[in-house]
Amino acid sequence: MRSQPYGTIFTSSWLVERGYSLDLQKQYKKSNWLESIGSGAMKRTGDDIPLEGALFALQHQLGMHIHIGAKSALGLQGKAHYLKLNASRTSLFGPLKENPPKWFRDQWKDKYSLTQSDFLPVDIGVTDFDFGAYKLKISTPARAIMECLYLAPEKQPLMECYEIMEGLNNLRPNSVQQLLENCNSIKVKRLFLFMAEKAAHQWFRYINTESVDLGKGKRSIVPNGVFDQKYQITLPKELKKKDERGI
Rank of each mutant, 00 (worst) to 15 (best):
S3G: 06
P5E: 08
I9Q: 11
T11V: 07
S13H: 06
G19D: 01
G19Y: 07
D23S: 07
L24M: 03
Q25A: 15
Q27C: 09
K29N: 05
S31Y: 10
S31A: 07
L34Y: 01
L34R: 01
G38I: 04
S39V: 13
A41M: 04
R44C: 11
T45L: 11
G46Y: 05
D48A: 03
P50I: 00
E52T: 14
A54G: 12
A54D: 08
L55S: 01
F56Y: 13
F56V: 04
Q59S: 12
Q61R: 10
G63F: 05
H67Q: 03
H67F: 04
H67N: 05
I68G: 04
K71M: 12
S72H: 02
L74H: 04
G75R: 14
G78C: 02
K79E: 06
K79W: 12
A80K: 03
H81V: 12
H81T: 12
L83K: 01
N86C: 13
S88A: 07
S88M: 14
R89L: 12
F93K: 04
F93W: 04
G94F: 05
L96Y: 05
N99M: 10
P101C: 00
K102W: 14
F104N: 10
R105V: 15
D106F: 00
S113N: 12
L114P: 14
L114D: 13
T115G: 13
Q116Y: 02
V122G: 05
D123K: 01
G125Q: 07
T127E: 01
D128K: 01
D130M: 04
G132M: 10
K135Q: 08
K137H: 14
I138T: 06
I138N: 03
S139A: 15
T140R: 15
A142R: 11
A142I: 00
A144F: 15
I145T: 02
C148F: 09
Y150W: 11
Y150F: 15
L151F: 13
A152C: 15
A152M: 13
P153C: 02
K155V: 14
P157A: 09
L158D: 04
M159A: 15
E160I: 09
Y162L: 13
I164S: 06
M165C: 06
E166F: 15
G167C: 08
L171D: 00
L171N: 04
L171K: 07
S175W: 02
V176K: 08
V176D: 03
V176W: 11
Q177P: 00
L179K: 09
L179V: 05
L180D: 08
L180C: 06
E181P: 00
N182T: 09
C183H: 14
V188C: 07
L193K: 08
M195C: 13
M195G: 07
M195P: 00
E197A: 07
K198Q: 15
K198Y: 10
A200W: 08
W203G: 01
F204P: 06
R205T: 13
T209Y: 11
K216N: 13
K216S: 10
S220Q: 09
P223A: 00
G225Y: 05
V226P: 08
V226I: 15
F227I: 08
F227Q: 12
D228W: 15
D228P: 13
Q229D: 10
Q229M: 04
Y231K: 13
I233Y: 14
T234G: 09
L235M: 14
L235P: 13
L235S: 05
P236L: 05
K237M: 02
K237D: 03
L239T: 11
D243R: 02
D243C: 06
